[in-house]
Design a binder for these strands. Structure first.
Length: 423
DNA sequence: TCTGGGGTCCTAGGACCC
DNA sequence: TCTGGGGTCCTAGGACCC
């Protein structure tokens, strides 16, 4: 029995979100910047056609912005996250089994719709999402997730398919595989692609024709799983449960480089606070923390980078426990007179709050006031907006904080920033 | 002028145990 | 005198994803 997977992927997602509220930008070159407006992370087809690609530093195209040839936006994750939720909600009406794979992608199990014309169903999905949310999507259909990804790639690449491509039982299956380069396969990144090319494997057909032992030897069993999927044997199931994170990272580059210990303390406290907040969102506690600070490796200035781990005596989700330890760790690696560009916090050794290992001499997090306090802080911030309540050590509007000069409004999530329709 | 942030899984190698 | 072989756990690092 064959499986039917569909992969729905939004076209230039961040750009499309901005265009929903700026319809005048349809068909025009648009780019979205990373944090601190550093580099391009997403771009429209039109901008791509101007020779711009993902990852280039933003300042290189600022002159085009001044000439009004290109429009840029700072990342507006509040907006993108909310648009994503709307899209996923639409998709959930097309199947009982939906895996939200990323902010702009979802896998759908369509096994139950075999009696329908599956191509038509794909078109209907595409049409409905666009109609209801304003965001254009592409739909790829295959009998494994990896093949659905390939089909999606083809749907995007060739206009004649109008955004929907089904690779199941395709009359020219091998020919199709031959047109896809190995670096476009889900699970084959930069390094393996380079290695495969060297070994004489350029396209997907060549790859699937290699023996299992050859694949295993050169790409480990992870690669073998990918190749089996390409051959139509489903090895990667739909992941319907969102499982708890095993590590939580909060880290960012600074808007401006800093060298003062107080600024670093603020940044570490802020990232700590955010990471522990995420920890509580999944009702977990954690015992291990790692912090790091580093200078700008792209600059020709004195370099310093260091990281250090520490452990709490008992697992916790109480922000001050983590901040106190993090500051101690920071003091032990901090060196004066360097221009720091980035810091970060990573929390690990995570367990469920009600199943955490106990310590004979200390009260568990769930059993004392610390949980009550944190729950209270979280509910206030949830109701009134993030950062209404913060910890003193986080500081206020430090110069290290993120630069976002081209930010659009939070059109869909903030009453004060709703779009206005002029009659 | 200047280069994102947040994740997962697997493997290799060392320490340690019986 | 001899120094196997198998197992587990941990960590660092490499690969990948968006």
């Amino acid at each position: 029995m064959k499986n039917i997977f569909a992969l729905v992927d939004c076209n230039s997602f961040y750009v499309s979100c901005e265009r929903v509220f700026r319809p005048d930008l349809k068909g025009k070159p648009v780019g979205i910047l990373s944090n601190n407006d550093g580099c391009i992370v997403a771009l429209s087809k039109e901008l791509k056609n101007m020779g711009v690609h993902r990852g280039i530093p933003a300042f290189k195209i600022f002159h085009l912005v001044k000439q009004k040839k290109v429009t840029l936006f700072s990342s507006n994750y509040t907006l993108y996250g909310d648009m994503s939720a709307r899209i996923m909600n639409v998709l959930s009406q097309f199947t009982p089994e939906l895996e939200i794979y990323s902010i702009d992608e979802a896998f759908l199990n369509l096994n139950g719709f075999k009696s329908l014309d599956i191509n038509e169903y794909g078109k209907k999905i595409k049409y409905t999402v666009e109609k209801w949310t304003g965001v254009p999507v592409s739909v790829g259909i295959g009998q494994t997730k990896t093949l659905a990804k390939i089909a999606n790639h083809i749907a995007k690449k060739y206009q004649k398919f109008e955004g929907v491509f089904n690779i199941i039982d395709h009359p020219n299956f091998n020919k199709v595989l031959e047109t896809v380069a190995v670096n476009n396969v889900w699970g084959i990144g930069h390094n393996y692609a380079k290695k495969l090319n060297k070994l004489g494997v350029q396209n997907v057909l060549q790859l699937v024709n290699r023996s299992d032992t050859w694949i295993d030897k050169n790409m480990t069993i992870v690669g073998l799983r990918t190749v089996k999927e390409l051959r139509g044997i489903s090895c990667i199931d739909l992941n319907l449960m969102t499982s708890d994170k095993k590590q939580i990272i909060s880290s960012k580059s600074f808007g401006k480089p800093i060298s003062d210990i107080d600024d670093l303390k603020q940044s570490i406290s802020t990232y700590c606070s955010r990471a522990v907040e995420k920890l509580r969102e999944q009702n977990s506690v954690a015992q291990q923390i790692m912090i790091f600070i580093l200078t700008n490796p792209f600059k020709d200035t004195p370099q310093y980078a260091n990281y250090i781990s520490g452990r709490l005596s008992v697992a916790s989700a109480y922000t001050p426990d983590f901040i106190n330890l993090a500051i101690k760790l920071l003091m032990s690696i901090y060196k004066e007179n360097y221009l720091y560009k980035k810091s970060g916090v990573m929390i690990s050794d995570i367990s469920p709050q009600y199943d955490a290992e106990l310590n004979l001499f200390e009260t568990a997090y769930v059993d004392d006031n610390r949980k009550i306090i944190m729950d209270c802080v979280d509910s206030i911030n949830h109701k009134w907006g993030r950062n209404i309540m913060t910890f003193g050590s986080e500081g206020i509007a430090g110069k290290w904080q993120m630069k976002r000069e081209f930010l659009s409004q939070r059109f869909t999530t903030n009453w004060n920033e709703l779009p206005i329709v002029k009659a």
